[in-house]
């Protein structure tokens, strides 16, 4: 079964991607996590996202495009990236989520991917 990991990170964590005292540690932890996922054959896809200041939200109201600068939900932590895991059950997916660096300083939402029937 496929599970999507939605990775929520604080603005500070997002900042530390692009230089600063924590940059090296930030990328090292993600590198190690990614290697472990690949080695176990768990990860089937995913990406890190650029910061929420680059987000644009669109909806159509009365047939007209309403385009807004910013993310859909403006919260303290933002969606920093996503990954898709292939796991036998939720418990296994949660075990992998627990190893995610963002679980320590942000949050990881785990959701099964909808199967088209």
């Amino acid at each position: 079964m496929n599970y999507m990991m939605m990775i929520f990170e604080s603005d500070d964590a997002m900042e530390s991607r692009n230089g600063g005292p924590n940059t090296e540690a930030y990328w090292a932890s993600w590198g190690a996590y990614h290697s472990a996922l690949t080695e176990a054959g768990v990860i089937t896809g995913g990406n890190a996202l650029q910061g929420k200041q680059t987000a644009t939200t669109l909806r159509i109201t009365d047939g007209k495009r309403q385009v807004q600068d910013g993310p859909y939900a403006d919260s303290k932590e933002q969606l920093g990236g996503y990954m898709v895991f292939d796991c036998p059950d939720l418990d296994t997916a949660l075990d992998w989520a627990a190893k995610c660096p963002a679980a320590e300083y942000g949050a990881v939402e785990v959701r099964p991917v909808h199967k088209s029937e």
């Binding site: 079964m1 939720l90 418990d91 099964p112």
Partner: peptide, 8 residues
């Protein structure tokens, strides 16, 4: 059922 919580 949907999230497939394991019966273990």
């Amino acid at each position: 059922r949907g999230a497939k919580i394991s019966f273990e």
